[in-house]
Amino acid sequence: MAQSDLDVIGVGNAIVDVLAKADDAFLATHDIPKGGMLLIDEDQARVIYDDMAPGVEVSGGSAANSIACVASLGGNGGFVGKVSADALGDIFRHDLRAMGVEFDTKPLTEGPGTGRCLINVTPDAQRSMMTFLGSAGYVAPDDIDPAQINRAAITFFEGYLFEQPVAREAFLRACEIAKENGKKTALTLSDASCVDRQIEILPDFISNNVDILLANDVEAAALFGTDDIDAMVEKARALCPLTAVTRSEKGSVLIPREGEVVYVDAYAPSSLIDTTGAGDAYAAGLLFGLARNYSLDKAGKLGSIAASEVISHFGARPSESLKDLAEKAGIL
């Protein structure tokens, strides 16, 4: 694809992540599904937050994490997401802009506060998330700037946000603009439970609007009705021009509509600390590579090395320059 002013612009939930260590007993006490994500209300968020161990608070959200990783790779990124006009919203905006990411969405001035995700990480590095969306789910078609979408090689949508009807309209608006200008769109499925809840409408949205689909193996199984990667291939080819399926330590599989399937090895992390953001980081590497017209193999390797860095420490955003790591690995 032609070089664009922005490599990737993400449309997703603007969330502040609260990360803390926990054990299985804590999860059981609060009915938190291990390794999954549940939406909660503000009262539930307050109860769980008060009982969590000391931790860290950082700007997060799946698509926003991906765009932060794009910036760390040396790319140009933008973000569309809704925060409130409050302290957490100011922190979120500052964090993204400090990385060089464009973030100009107008804040919500009435209604719920800025969203937050309570992430409890168990000793096996599994992250279990309880999310109060707050203002994050209020992304609307009016928040889509046609000029900004036109400047991006790829517009990237977060599956979590697909569940909000008004946000789906925003997705469709952005897809229309991207298609009119010959640009690409991408969607991450985000969570298998999201797929299950939206299975009646999700395949049609993908088929009609999405050029690049990203999923982990569990999410892909929920969408395609099989956990056999060979059986997935033909279904994926029929649904989307390019499908990327991540498989943790087994690496990833890139399935183009035409041509050979590409298998990409995982990069072993220096240590496995916290899997929060692994899929977000992989998406960033892959999409950055595709925006720069790299081969599927090279783009997939960028995704793998980005994911490896993110899972080697606490938190969902890189602590080292992904560009430097990719250069040392001979990918860039």
Rank of each mutant, 00 (worst) to 15 (best):
E327N: 11
G100C: 04
P203K: 03
V58I: 15
I40K: 14
L290A: 07
T105Q: 11
G111Q: 00
P33L: 14
L223K: 05
I67V: 15
L286A: 03
V101G: 08
A299Q: 02
R197M: 12
S4Q: 14
S190E: 02
I331E: 00
A244R: 00
E219T: 12
T105S: 15
A140G: 12
T276D: 10
A306M: 11
T185F: 01
I311G: 10
S135I: 06
V101I: 15
K21G: 06
P241C: 10
A215K: 00
L332R: 05
T114A: 05
I9D: 10
A174W: 01
L38M: 11
K250M: 14
C117G: 02
A316P: 12
D142A: 15
L202S: 12
L287C: 06
H30Q: 07
D230L: 11
L290F: 05
P241Y: 11
T29Y: 08
L172N: 02
I311Q: 08
S248Y: 08
G89P: 00
Q126T: 13
I48F: 12
D191T: 07
D95R: 09
T109Y: 05
P269Y: 11
V233M: 11
R151G: 08
R247P: 04
E180C: 10
D86T: 08
K82W: 05
I273S: 10
A167L: 07
G100V: 04
L214G: 04
D17H: 01
L254W: 06
G12T: 04
F92P: 03
L96R: 11
M37F: 04
G182I: 01
F162Q: 06
V245I: 07
R97L: 04
Q164R: 14
F103V: 00
Q126Y: 08
T155S: 11
G134T: 09
F171D: 01
E234L: 14
P318F: 01
A220V: 02
L189G: 02
E57V: 14
A238H: 07
R46H: 05
E158S: 07
H30L: 04
G113K: 00
G89T: 00
A152I: 11
A125I: 11
V16A: 05
A170T: 01
V195P: 01
A281P: 07
P165Y: 09
V233T: 14
D7M: 13
V80D: 02
F224S: 06
V261S: 08
A125D: 11
S252A: 15
K184D: 07
A174P: 02
S207P: 00
L223Q: 04
K298R: 12
D17E: 03
A266R: 02
T276R: 07
I91R: 15
R247M: 15
L254R: 04
G60P: 00
Q198I: 06
A222P: 09
D265Y: 09
F156P: 05
Q3T: 14
D143K: 13
V47P: 12
L27W: 05
T109M: 07
T122C: 13
A174M: 01
I311L: 10
V210R: 06
A307F: 03
A307Q: 01
E258H: 13
A266E: 02
I311C: 10
V261M: 09
A238G: 12
N65R: 00
A68R: 13
M37K: 07
